[in-house]
Design a protein around this nucleic acid. Structure first.
Lengths: 170, 170
DNA sequence: GCCGTGATGTCACTGTGTGCCATCAGCGTA
DNA sequence: TACGCTGATGGCACACAGTGACATCACGGC
């Protein structure tokens, strides 16, 4: 993160990252599948929170409301770790390769969320659509959070975004 | 496309593609920003159809209905060129790097669709959400089309997918 | 003291992607 | 015809990502 902030992602070589971390290039690639992955190592936690919250939603909750619980759980995590996500997002915003990887992660969230919904008895394609819609809400709300003024509550932004989606789809 | 179908994307080098096309590696990279891009060259047309149809929707159409027009226009193009998209999708499905690039293209569609909606007077974040939701519908419907039996009508799949989204968001 | 086992280092190598310069065809102009 | 300009291409050389193969080393069990 330090190196990326100093020189940018592209201008930082894996050898330099490895040296800073006290290991070799080869060992770096044993821990991370590729150079980008080092910035997304924490995303499994996020996905886990998301699916757990969906699974834990009341049995009679509608699919999209279960997804809303998942989004709320993600927001908890964001709020918890302060503005680290914002710094990280600035690095990602400056590099197309990283944006690609982020999209992959988000689609992975959608797939995991859809699976969690199916476990709740939601049929396809409703499960996938509810999960994809939830990720759309996340994208839009998160974008407002990182690009807007500091201190705004990410929970509220996501809730508003979801309400807006419901209004649009009505 | 021939080379990718024979040996797979990864096992095909840019030098081989260039040779087959009668030019050099260097020239290939002047036409395509990277190796993956050669598979996505036609996507600008698709995006253009999408935004044109949104712009051409009746002035009183709801945002999501304007997006539905856009999806219909894309379906026209898919149906027109037969099963080439299915072959292409098989290549993409076999390679994570290509999937990443496809997501980027889809998100680009969403952004272009959102801009078209804003031109129609739709405010944010409704415009982005409607466009993102439309792309979710496209992903789910297209996935059914390529993975399901041959001969199904992509228009119908997309319409059903959209109806399902509306039901889920109700 | 010996033997796995897992983590790490070292080395060589392929392939992507880029910068730099040479070449060449076409085209307008004197 | 000769000249110079321009745009497209080829031909290098290179940095860097990522991988396979092998060596090394620390460790714990026996």
């Amino acid at each position: 993160m330090d190196l990326f902030a100093e020189r940018g992602f592209e201008a930082t070589t894996v050898a330099e990252i490895a040296e800073r971390a006290g290991l070799t290039k080869r060992t770096f690639f044993r821990y991370f599948g590729d150079k980008r992955e080092v910035l997304f190592a924490g995303s499994e936690d996020l996905r886990a929170k998301f699916v757990e919250a969906i699974a834990a939603a009341p049995a009679d909750a509608a699919p999209l409301d279960a997804v809303a619980r998942g989004l709320d759980a993600m927001a908890d995590l964001f709020a918890e770790i302060g503005d680290a996500p914002r710094k990280r997002q600035a690095i990602i915003a400056a590099n197309p390769d990283l944006q690609e990887r982020e999209l992959v992660k988000l689609v992975g969230f959608a797939a995991a969320g859809a699976a969690a919904l199916r476990d709740r008895g939601v049929a396809e394609p409703a499960a996938s659509l509810a999960a994809e819609a939830g990720i759309a809400v996340l994208r839009v709300g998160f974008e407002q959070w990182v690009s807007g003024p500091e201190g705004r509550d990410i929970h509220e932004l996501l809730r508003n975004s979801l309400a807006e989606l419901k209004a649009v789809a009505a």
